[in-house]
Design a protein around this nucleic acid. Structure first.
Lengths: 410, 410
DNA sequence: CAAACTTTATTAAAAAAATTATTAACAAAG
DNA sequence: CTTTGTTAATAATTTTTTTAATAAAGTTTG
């Protein structure tokens, strides 16, 4: 049964007026409330909607005819007649999340109920700013779509996560695939045959982390993506913060040190020059060259081929050098977080990305730097947490963002 | 005519249900739209409300009976019958803004249309964390209220701006008047006989700057309050950002320098230790002691009594030392702003507070530091502007915030 | 185990709001 | 100075929504 048309009828942007407009708006609200609070009874919805019970009943019935809602049994009695519970129909529509990394991509599909249907990780791919790389990307995602057994029209939207500066609103990417007049989101939509959006990678991960699980408990949180580069997702007053052109969260190239290391952005003293995956690998190599020994070298004898993952794994295997370097890194990142905590007064700071796998090796020095460099009254509010969903944050976040952008609801 | 009751009937928080609730909500929306877009016609309002014209007409008529709206003549013809324009009644209610500084206070009253009715500046007052200081504050504000010729019941709300950590939501102040169980806002309400709120001084100034004039044009902006201390007001996605407990914007005690100066917050390396009014006065004294000459010393021969204003005025009189020190300060603050711009991608950064009076003497070095230390693509979006309303920002912002908190609308 | 109590679902009457039609007010063209 | 076109306000009609009453489906208590 193809319900994609019905979904788009309600969530598309055709102009309606009068009662039709109001009913459509109410239907969106119903979906919205179920998104946030899970399956609900008519009474619940009526209360939240501010409409009467008969009205709500008729709206829910229409949504069931449209195929967007279905009855999920009855609620446990609260002392009277048991109420029917209505929830989303998983197959009403699907959303694609494409997490594009420099040397691989992860792709995943979620259904209308936000459950992950399929995820392919570590598909080999080389990200460069060339038309060939673009075509390869489209081909890989197309293959994934074909492998799904889901009609293409059922996939209502897709989101591509890219690193660097991305303007989500108009669909332009400035760091990759920046060789055409039209916005990237437009050419992707055309070439994929699916409505596409683009998003900054760290922000997508943050979105996945914030909304991937049960209803997110806090309204103000920061997500720090610690990979070769650094990224920050800002969640302010219950929603993602983008800034004027969608460039918010550029924490990597913030002035933090008075050093002479030239960052790949061209400036000196950037946070990334001393406190990032790149910096960590560089510092590791420097130490090895100075004659310090490390268990990592047994696994990867070629110093130039040592990767961030190797150092992270080294720390997890109790390699002293790796642990020390990561601890230093944590201290430096903690200083930057102290700045952010003073300014944002967030409830949570969530650590994600490859480096977050080191767990308390990076978290504890960070925490003590935060305590040292930010105001006590402010940092007392802030919990420093490790990511719960790890690498899948990007894919889940992307897919959820596609859903969010289309349906204008969490 | 006392309309305060009518205002509170619509904007109070008594629980209503069904149609009554909806009508109240629609009435609030009407006031809200007029707040934002100015006086409006029925057609305008009907469109924005999503209600029919007869419904809107009856709501507007009721609001006119309540005394909150009045006809402001007719609009210029657009080719047909001229439409009536409806606007707020200035005397429907008043709001008090109290800007508490360390050595003086400014008080002002605005009416329902947000026009300033009266403002008293530089009333002598000594702010300390004592019951005596609190009583004195209440007395001064009470005198101001008595001098107004406006019934106390007509003053619907007041807002007190205090420096330091303030939790706007629950009304607690942590830096001043922190010697009682109950929240400060509660005891102020009781002692003043007016519903009172408390707010952080810089945030109140930011609010005044953002909403004091015509409808604010941008959605993402930062306001930097440069006085003896530093403060930051964050305006994100069209509204003030508070953070978890309302402590957002603590930019003064952010780790920025690797110096050994101990800040009055107890930490080292805080931005305020080198880039604030305090730091400026200290550096000025140091230079004078080293034998550098300055025209300021002719006006204030006692070095220990030189105030921030004196140095600011010195710069405006082309005193070389003052200009140099302020330029250095601008460079350092610019570095911190570069950090913030990378993270927030704001459209405007507005400079306010005493130091902003130095105009381009501080703005230009700031701008060049911003260009030097933040990403070009990001900082290209950002205009660095000087405050338009100067010292009155605090009073206007406070009064507007009182109005905002009561009416939940700009 | 039946009566009393609770809560949910359905229905019909009453109320409210949206359409539609009509009248009024004004501008510009001829 | 009349005619025509356009927009606003109001009245009449129709549709939608709410309210309130009732039926249905459970639970709890004596």
């Amino acid at each position: 049964m193809d319900r994609a048309g019905n979904v788009l009828q309600i969530f598309g942007d055709e102009a309606t007026t009068g009662v039709a407009y109001k009913n459509r708006w109410l239907k969106r609200q119903i979906i919205n409330f179920i998104n946030i609070g899970g399956s609900s009874t008519i009474t619940d919805l009526s209360l939240k909607l501010g409409s009467s019970i008969p009205k709500t009943t008729s709206l829910v019935n229409e949504l069931m005819e449209d195929g967007l809602l279905e009855e999920h049994g009855k609620i446990d009695s609260t002392g009277g007649r048991r109420a029917s519970v209505f929830g989303l129909v998983a197959s009403s529509g699907f959303f694609l999340g494409v997490d594009v990394h420099r040397y691989h991509i992860n792709i995943g599909l979620i259904d209308f109920r936000k459950d992950l249907v399929k995820m392919d990780e570590n598909l080999p791919f080389l990200l460069t700013n060339t038309p060939e790389s673009y075509k390869e990307l489209v081909r890989i995602v197309d293959d994934f779509v074909k492998s799904l057994g889901v009609e293409r029209t059922q996939i209502l939207a897709a989101c591509f996560n890219l690193s660097g500066r991305v303007n989500t609103e108009n669909g332009y990417s400035f760091s990759f695939f920046h060789f055409q007049e039209a916005p990237l989101s437009e050419s992707l939509s055309r070439d994929m045959g699916i409505r596409c959006f683009v998003e900054n990678d760290s922000r997508a991960m943050a979105f996945g982390e914030f909304f991937g699980g049960k209803p997110f408990e806090v309204n103000n949180a920061l997500f720090l993506n610690m990979d070769y580069g650094l990224g920050l997702g800002i969640f302010a007053d219950g929603k993602m913060y983008y800034g004027k052109s969608g460039f918010s969260g550029e924490i990597g190239h913030v002035p933090m040190f008075q050093n002479e290391i030239i960052c790949h952005c061209g400036k000196k003293g950037c946070l990334e020059t001393e406190a990032s995956g790149w910096a960590l690998v560089e510092m590791f190599r420097e130490k090895i060259r100075q004659g310090v020994s490390s268990a990592v070298m047994k696994k990867c004898p070629d110093l130039e081929k040592v990767k961030l993952e190797d150092i992270v794994n080294g720390a997890l295997m109790d390699d002293v050098l790796c642990i020390e370097l990561i601890s230093d890194l944590g201290e430096k990142l903690g200083r930057a977080l102290a700045f952010l905590i003073n300014v944002f007064n967030p409830e949570w700071v969530i650590l994600g990305g490859t480096l977050s796998k080191t767990g308390d090796y990076i978290r504890l020095p960070m925490r003590s730097a935060i305590n040292k460099y930010s105001l006590g009254l402010v940092n007392n509010d802030t919990q420093l947490r490790l990511s719960k969903i790890g690498v899948s944050a990007g894919v889940i976040g992307g897919a959820l963002l596609a859903r969010h952008r289309l349906m204008q609801t969490i």
